[in-house]
Design a protein around this nucleic acid. Structure first.
Lengths: 341, 341
DNA sequence: AGACCGGTTGTTAACGTTCACAGTCGGGGC
DNA sequence: GCCCCGACTGTGAACGTTAACAACCGGTCT
């Protein structure tokens, strides 16, 4: 009852009339202004309830010049990592009272980020989170004249934007050191695409751990994050008889590596140990269950919103840099190297 | 040059003055109104360019009462299916000139959908796509007084909303018939949660195929879509000696089943054949590569936007019902039943 | 010649909110 | 008794756009 078809939605003036006050008083009630007599407030609230009034946020945004909407720019939200990050962002934003508007890019061209940012700026977002894991995207971001407060996720160190990221180098180290500690002579690496900062960080961690142990770093094999590219790298590795340990830059590629090894009759972890990265939900059920490095995507998403909201509401601050540590997850794909080398 | 710090953004009136016309003429140019002299149009365009003017969409939305924003309500966008669907939705919406605002729910409580819809309505979205695969969500949707044009994805047949979905029954049939055609006596089933419409559809398809072939349908094992629940079902199935074929309601659970079989020394497809559902990117690299039923999530997302936009821009139409067919993908996890039964 | 018409442009009034400011009322200090 | 102040409330004007309507121009129709 009340709001029947064809009837125009009630506005503040309607509520005001119903409650016998001015529209401004209604506004004050809605915005929790202190100086309203509690009896008046009650009357207004009752009128609001009776008419089923809902404040028009568009009109509000026009005059306040704040839309309470945050933009998110991301690449391929179909992947587990970006999807989880965006999920964390969305939850945190809603909890903080912001709407989320998403743009997900399919290609990595440098103009893409710019266009997406323009697009969101047109919409009137108050701030933007850019999940920009490629170096080119990070650079584009750094070069942009930033009219809007921006936070980058995995976005490198350049520019004036705040950055939230997982410590990829530490992750690469963790994986490599684990394999070394099991007694492996050296550790091979299947990397992600070289344009990706995450891939670069993992390579760096792997190299650092190897160097620190005084071992030679073999030539890494480059993949593109897909299971198929891992499979191909796995076939190459299966042919080399001196390989006993492989650190693969993500779990999907690790699956491909596992598959290739299985096909070639290479036993994991009997002959070769494998470590992945990400800890996707499937990893624990691979054959064998995958030892991997866990990234807390959800935390990254939440933190990016915290940083952004702090910037938005706490006045202008210096750019922040927040790093989330990765975690080592031991499962069944790693073991000591075989006796006979 | 041009937009310097501290300078307020140019508005239509500024452009009008610069071009020596009225603001209304500027508006006309911006909205491609036909009756503008081409010379005037050029002058306005030039002024816009010179001042770096961008139209304020919030002000526009206030007067037109259309925000050109579409809401999306979804469950756990971390899963491949929903993530892909949302991705398709986002791409299609942007192409059609709409912004996307996302709400992703974590719990399945019936009030959740209602709250999300309210939330989006407050924001002033023109329409909503609800990815509501649970029966409870579908019912909530059907019961709601829909103030806003709505399209449901996988949302059952009830209510007045349009629905876009994959033909789950056909998918269940496809999987079961394939196994039957290989010579299996009957087919076991690991289902999704009973509250999910998709799970229900797949069960129905499986049952129908079995009945049509005159076979007895065994008691299905219920999972929750997770690899772990598949693993548990797999352990049960491995203990039963008469099982030669299993249709698992999604690929993640199929992975768990595969893992359990491997652990118990049950060979796939040597002793037992397994068929999954979804065709996630990992499936082709499972051990063995998984025979499965492919869902075109992207198409579902795109279609849902097409239906919604048609409703929004083509005047009021009857609710539509659009069904996307699933596709059978044969890989290495299925074979004829073992000789010795 | 006068009415009329289509193309083009300008003027004024919305849209629904918040902001700035101006009141009103009652009480306390002097 | 007067002034001032704080609590409360109302009035008018923004915000930047589109919609509705009026006005003007030149030409065509009768």
């Amino acid at each position: 009852m009340g709001s029947r078809l064809g009837r125009r939605l009630p506005v503040m003036a309607d509520v005001a009339k119903e409650a016998g006050v001015s529209h401004q008083t209604v506004s004050r009630v809605l915005n929790d202004h202190p100086n309203v007599r509690s009896e008046t407030r009650a009357r207004v609230l009752q009128a609001i309830d009776k008419l089923g009034y809902r404040r028009n946020l568009v009109a509000r945004a026009l005059v306040t010049k704040r839309s309470r909407t945050l933009g998110v720019v991301s690449f391929d939200t179909t992947l587990y990592g970006p999807a989880s990050t965006v999920y964390g962002i969305e939850q945190a934003a809603r909890a903080a009272g912001y709407f989320i508007s998403i743009v997900s890019l399919k290609s990595i061209d440098p103009g893409g980020v710019r266009d997406a940012l323009d697009y969101l700026a047109d919409q009137g977002v108050d701030g933007v989170v850019v999940v920009a894991p490629q170096r080119s995207a990070a650079r584009a971001l750094a070069d942009l004249p930033l009219a809007i407060p921006t936070v980058a996720v995995e976005g490198g160190q350049a520019g004036e934007v705040s950055v939230v990221s997982v410590d990829q180098v530490a992750g690469g180290r963790l994986a490599t050191e684990h394999l070394l500690s099991l007694g492996h002579e050296t550790v091979w690496h299947v990397s992600g695409p070289s344009d990706w900062l995450e891939a670069e960080g993992r390579v760096a961690g792997w190299r650092a751990a190897l160097e620190q142990a005084g071992r030679e770093a073999p030539q890494p094999l480059a993949g593109d994050w897909s299971p198929r590219s891992g499979y191909e790298a796995g076939r190459s590795l299966a042919r080399m008889t001196d390989v006993t340990a492989v650190f693969v830059a993500n779990d999907q590629m690790a699956l491909g590596v596992l598959r290739a090894f299985t096909e070639q009759g290479v036993s994991v972890p009997g002959q070769v140990s494998v470590v992945g990265f990400d800890d996707i939900p499937e990893s624990a059920y691979f054959s064998p269950p995958l030892t991997t490095i866990r990234q807390d995507f959800d935390a990254v998403g939440r933190h990016s919103i915290e940083v952004l909201v702090r910037r938005l509401e706490g006045g202008l601050q210096e750019r922040e840099r927040l790093v989330v540590p990765p975690a080592f997850v031991r499962r069944a794909s790693t073991a000591q190297p075989p006796e006979g080398r």
